[in-house]
Design a protein around this nucleic acid. Structure first.
Lengths: 259, 259
DNA sequence: CGCGACTTTGAGGAATTTCAATAGGCGTGG
DNA sequence: CCACGCCTATTGAAATTCCTCAAAGTCGCG
């Protein structure tokens, strides 16, 4: 019963045996609401199964048709786009609770790729049957708009960051964002998150070179704002980070149903 | 009957008197499908009215609650976010057929602003009644997911651009994108579009300084890729622009219903 | 004509990239 | 157990891109 979810090879338990919403590891996260009985039944029916991806494997592939949608249950991934000459822009670090493939449910082919950074466990839904949901459970259909709008907000913020913030501000902003999102997902233990990515990933998300990214992180360390050794990341001075990052409070959103 | 829509102060007629889908100036655009009779009736009911914004006025205001949603019928606008110290990132140039306020229909307050560049005519819908649509016309609800996903793709591309492309590539990419979107909306006449924005706007969208933006545009001119005098913009060498911009074909999407 | 808004140009400086080299950690094979 | 190779992090230095400052030029308009 007490289901164990192992993240990134490090044996940490994520919510064994949730109480109300079924056996899902996501149950209980504050920004997710539980499904009603009718919804849950429908979703169970809609659900095609579960799929686990190894680190490094592709969940979605740029330019390829996808007939599936995924809810990430555990693990980290990156969503990115590339240019022909291999420059890569990481659009988002994907965490548990994030939804993948909405775009490809509208456009035949995904325009971006998603790669697992750790082992990633997902729930899989069939794209074809997806719009049926709109009809039978409008509330769930509405949640899809929620997901899309919420993704868009995150992208807006990222674009603001890459377009307007200096390298230092930008790095601080991204690390803070990741920390907070990890916190919401209860991935912070002893004030520490295990980041399953390296500085090259960070560089690709920030639109900076690897070398400069490294130097900027060094500065955040020197400023005693963060600690980051191996994979273990700590936020030493949140207020300081917010100041450097030009952080702005984010709008509180209504919790969304999890699928 | 033959309704005349004036854009940006320049007396150009945009589809007077469309045939099937009512009197809307958007009717007939290739990427929009017409509404069914039932849908149209519902939308007429949902519709609160029309609203025209003067150049420079705000359609949505960052941090403010909005109880309305808008479909842009004619005119240009910019959607942007700002930092406390007034740095501004333009997230998107808004054109006819674009939908505004979806995010604020989910989150109480908009996290971005939208400012009219020209006179902007819109159809206005009440946010509160919006989710009713999900129930009564699931197909239309689905279109909202379409809109959101499509916006997101555009943002993905913009982030890739700002994060990875050089100043020259980035400028070429944005101008090409604007040209193509204008073309889809039948705003290109005699191979010419009237751009209602200045180089500062462009700079704020590219994440570049005004001066550097100017120099980069100068280079595109010297390369005989574009012509841009006053407000009139021409694409002289599309293939050349695509090459410089590292352009990649975009996925064809199913047309969406217009609201 | 003169003002205001926008564009263009030059020059110096700061931020960031590229190149190059070193260092540390970790796993594998000998 | 050690040596080696590979991957990642770190550092220094030169090269380039982009930014800021400053000034001049253009254009429309009252």
């Amino acid at each position: 019963m007490a289901e164990r979810t192992v993240i990134g090879g490090v044996g940490r338990v994520l919510r064994p045996d949730p109480h109300r919403c079924g056996r899902c590891a996501l149950a209980g996260l504050k920004f997710l609401r539980c499904l009603s009985e009718g919804e849950a039944a429908f979703v169970r029916d809609l659900k095609r199964g579960e799929m686990t991806f190894d680190p490094g494997s592709l969940i979605l592939h740029e330019g390829e048709e996808a007939d599936s949608l995924y809810t990430v249950v555990s693990g980290w991934a990156i969503r990115y786009k590339t240019l022909a000459d291999a420059r890569r822009q990481i659009l988002k670090f994907v965490l548990p609770g994030d939804f993948l493939g909405l775009q490809s449910s509208i456009f035949a082919a995904a325009e971006h790729s998603v790669e697992a950074l750790t082992e990633v466990r997902t729930c899989v839904f069939l794209r074809k049957r997806f719009w049926e949901m709109q009809e039978r459970h409008p509330q769930l259909g509405y949640e899809m708009v929620w997901v899309a709008a919420s993704d868009e907000q995150h992208l807006d913020a990222a674009l603001l960051s890459v377009g307007q913030r200096s390298a230092l501000e930008r790095a601080a902003y991204l690390l803070l964002d990741l920390y907070i999102r990890a916190e919401e997902r209860e991935l912070v233990v002893n004030e520490t998150v295990l980041f399953p990515f390296n500085q090259q990933h960070l560089a690709d998300a920030l639109g900076l070179s690897l070398v400069h990214t490294n130097k900027v992180i060094g500065r955040l360390r020197t400023m005693k704002l963060i600690k980051w050794e191996g994979r273990a990341f700590q936020l030493l001075d949140r207020a300081g980070m917010e100041a450097v990052a030009k952080w702005e409070a984010r709008a509180n959103a209504v919790p969304r149903a999890f699928l």
